[in-house]
Design a protein around this nucleic acid. Structure first.
Length: 284
DNA sequence: AAGAAGGGCAACCGCTTGTAA
DNA sequence: TTTACAAGCGGTTGCCCTTCT
């Protein structure tokens, strides 16, 4: 009884002695060295062994979100943004699952991206960010624009034999594929991760997800670990009604929201998807 | 130039899940 | 089968920086 109380008291004392808040360079160094020696496991023990006054949880988070060597820094690329949107359609707020398909990106980063960029636009449009209307807006207008810009970017880059910065980083390379088709292969697991095809129709894809074949989806499909973005439908809108009202179904958007809210304007697109970065690629 | 407002992001919190004893 | 602990995950908070007025 006494020992239990003593233990509880010690625990609370330990807890109160724990450091919180931003990590210092010294703490980072200690953690990195400790993980190099002992590996990533038993985070509470690791914290003690490293001499850090941090909880194991805190150490784990710091390592996974910031210190891990393969963490990719900087703005999300167009391909990554499209992938996030597509995977979010499929899985919702399963951030860690989505992050598994974006090498070097953390679930925290993706979550922050969704909340700060995507949900911000939903607020601006006065649409519930998890509503069907907002998803349709993304699918019908923003994603096609992203794909369009990406297609232009990639053709520009490929024609000048320079790999787009977004596709050539980390473990990924562009393999040689027919014109108009891009394939991004992760060398680590030899599995194709992202395939952009201008020739492949969505109906030709095997095992297309239920969502991908749903009416109104139109231009992307997701097959296991390989993601196809149908550029024909995204770019030329073939089989895709540009009339916003019919595209999303009657009553989904009001005139003022679609036509008057700059839903399809360059202004909106620029605000949403780092278009500033994008336009740089378009300039000769 | 200074204060206010807003955005972005790192870190924390609490709940759930997995696993070993 | 139960229990305790560790790890994982998504939601939330708070700080810092930038932009606006």
């Amino acid at each position: 009884m006494h020992s239990a109380n003593q233990s509880a008291r010690n625990d609370s004392e330990d807890e109160s002695e724990m450091r919180r808040g931003p990590w210092t360079l010294e703490e980072d160094t200690l953690l990195i060295h400790c993980i190099a020696c002992r590996g990533e496991s038993r985070w509470n023990l690791l914290a003690k062994f490293a001499g850090l006054k941090r909880t194991g949880k805190s150490c784990r988070l710091r390592w996974l979100n910031y210190l891990k060597p393969d963490i990719k820094r900087g703005n999300l690329t167009l391909q990554e943004q499209i992938l996030i949107l597509e995977l979010h359609f499929k899985w919702g707020n399963r951030w860690s699952k989505i992050a598994q398909h974006l090498p070097g990106r953390t679930d925290n980063e993706i979550k922050n991206y969704w909340r700060t960029r995507v949900q911000k636009q939903a607020r601006r449009l006065k649409i519930e960010s998890n509503s069907k209307r907002f998803l349709e807006a993304i699918r019908c207008f923003w994603m096609p624009r992203l794909v369009e810009q990406m297609e232009q970017t990639s053709s520009l880059s490929l024609s000048s034999s320079s790999i787009p910065p977004t596709m050539g980083t980390q473990n990924s390379t562009i393999s040689s594929v027919p014109p108009g088709e891009m394939k991004c292969v992760n060398q680590a697991n030899e599995k194709p991760e992202i395939c952009f095809s201008a020739s492949m129709g969505i109906t030709e894809m095997p095992e297309i997800s239920e969502q991908a074949t749903s009416p109104g989806h139109g231009f992307t499909s997701l097959v296991d670990d390989c993601y196809y973005v149908d550029i024909i439908r995204g770019y030329d809108m073939e089989g895709f009604n540009l009339d916003p009202m019919s595209a999303v179904g009657p009553g989904e958007f009001s005139d003022s929201q679609v036509a008057g809210s700059d839903l399809v304007s360059d202004d909106m697109a620029g605000a949403l998807w780092n278009m500033g970065e994008l336009w740089q690629f378009r300039k000769p």
